[in-house]
Amino acid sequence: MTRILDVRQKILKQNDETARAMRARFHDAGTFVCDLVSSPGAGKTELLTYTMRELRERGMTCAAVVGDLATNNDAERLATSGAPAKQILTGTMCHLEADMVAESIRGWDLSTLDALFIENVGNLVCPATWDLGADKRILLFPVTEGEDKPLKYPTLINTADLVIINKLDLAEAVGFDRELAIHNVERVRPDVPVLELSVRNNAGLEAWMNWVVHHVAADVPVAPAEASSF
C-alpha cells in the first residue's frame, strides 16, 4: 500500500521567499533594482559603468553587485564609475541566486541608494529560473551574436522587462539586420520594449538613461511608518 502526500509547493520556494523579502526591502528604501542578463561578453559591465557614472553626475546614488565565476575584473571595472561595486564569486555556479545577492548586500543602508544594479553571470539559460528581487530584468543582445539569438533563448527573453540591442557600433561590420532582430524579439516576447545602443559610439544612450531615470524617480522611499522591519 502506498499513500500520496499532497505537497503543492514551488521547488524554489526558499529562493522566492528571499527574493520577495529583498524586493520589499528595496521598495521600502526607494531603491530601484535591475537584474542584467546576457551571454558572456555582451557589454553588461561597460553599459553599467557608463550608467553609474552618468547617474552620479546627475546627483543620484547607485551601486552594483556583479556575479562572476572566478575573477574580480568586473567589479574593478564597475568601480571606475566612482560607485561602489561588489563582486560575488560564484565558483562553478552558472547563475546568481537570491541568497547570494542578499548576502552580498547584507548590512548595506539601502536608503542611501537610488539604484542598485545586479549584473548576473554571463549565461542565457540558467539565470531565467531565479528571481533576485529586482524590479526589472534587462536582457542584452549584442549585434555580434546575430539576429536569431532571441529565438534560441525563448525562456530567458520571456522573463525580460526590457531588451537592449547592444554594440550598435559593430552593426555594419557584422552585417546586422536590425529589423529582423527586432521582429524576432517581438515574436518571442510580444510588447517588450526594445532599446538599441552603443556606449562606444554614444548611440541611443539618452533613451536608455531616460528609461533608468524614469524608474529611479518612480521608486521613492515608503514613509518610515509604513516601512517593513526587514
Binding site: M1, T2, R3, D6, V7, R8, Q9, K10, I11, T129
Partner: peptide
C-alpha cells in the same frame, strides 16, 4: 494575435510525494 499574458508555462512545482504506508 500577440499576447504577453502568460496563463501557464512557468511552473516549477512539487505536486506530491508517494510514500509506503508502512
Amino acid at each position: 494575435r500577440a499576447s504577453s499574458e502568460l496563463l501557464s508555462g512557468r511552473e516549477l512545482e512539487i505536486a506530491s510525494i508517494e510514500v509506503d504506508e508502512s
